[in-house]
Amino acid sequence: HHGSGALAALHADGPHAGLPVTRSDARVLIFNDWEERKRSEPWLRLDMSDKAIFRRYPHLR
Rank of each mutant, 00 (worst) to 15 (best):
S4E: 11
V28F: 06
S40C: 14
K38H: 13
H11R: 04
F31D: 15
I30Y: 01
I53R: 01
G5V: 12
A8I: 09
A26H: 00
K38S: 09
L44K: 04
A12C: 13
L29N: 07
A8P: 13
G18C: 05
V28Q: 09
D13K: 15
S49Q: 02
R39P: 10
H59C: 00
D50Y: 07
A6R: 15
K51E: 15
P58N: 03
F54T: 07
W34I: 01
L19S: 02
A8D: 03
L46G: 01
L7P: 10
A52E: 15
L19Q: 05
D50I: 11
D13V: 08
H1K: 12
L7E: 09
A52P: 00
R23A: 10
K38Q: 09
A6F: 13
R23F: 12
A8K: 14
E41L: 06
H11Q: 03
H16M: 09
A26E: 01
P58A: 03
R56L: 11
K38A: 13
N32V: 09
R23L: 15
E35H: 11
A12K: 13
R39D: 12
L60M: 02
P15W: 06
A17L: 07
P20K: 01
S4L: 12
W34K: 00
E41I: 07
R45E: 12
W43K: 08
L46Q: 01
R37W: 02
W34D: 14
R56N: 05
L60I: 02
G14R: 04
M48W: 15
E35P: 00
L60T: 00
D50S: 07
S40F: 10
G18R: 04
A26G: 02
A6E: 09
A26F: 01
L60F: 04
A6T: 14
L7I: 14
A26Q: 00
S49F: 02
W43Q: 08
G5M: 11
G14L: 03
A12E: 11
L44D: 02
R23G: 04
L46V: 06
G14P: 05
D47M: 03
S24E: 14
A6L: 15
M48Y: 06
D25C: 07
F54K: 03
V28T: 08
G3L: 14
R27S: 04
K51F: 13
L10Y: 09
L60R: 01
S4N: 11
D13Y: 08
P58V: 04
A9M: 13
D47S: 02
S24V: 09
S24W: 14
A8H: 10
W43G: 10
A17P: 03
T22D: 04
S24Y: 13
R45L: 14
H16L: 14
L29D: 00
A8C: 08
H16V: 04
H11Y: 13
R39E: 10
L19Y: 04
H11L: 05
H11C: 07
L46T: 00
L44A: 08
S4F: 15
S24K: 13
R55M: 13
R39N: 11
R23V: 15
S40W: 10
A26W: 05
A17C: 08
G18H: 05
F31L: 07
I30F: 13
H1Q: 11
P20H: 01
D13F: 08
A26S: 05
H11N: 06
I53W: 01
A17T: 07
K51W: 11
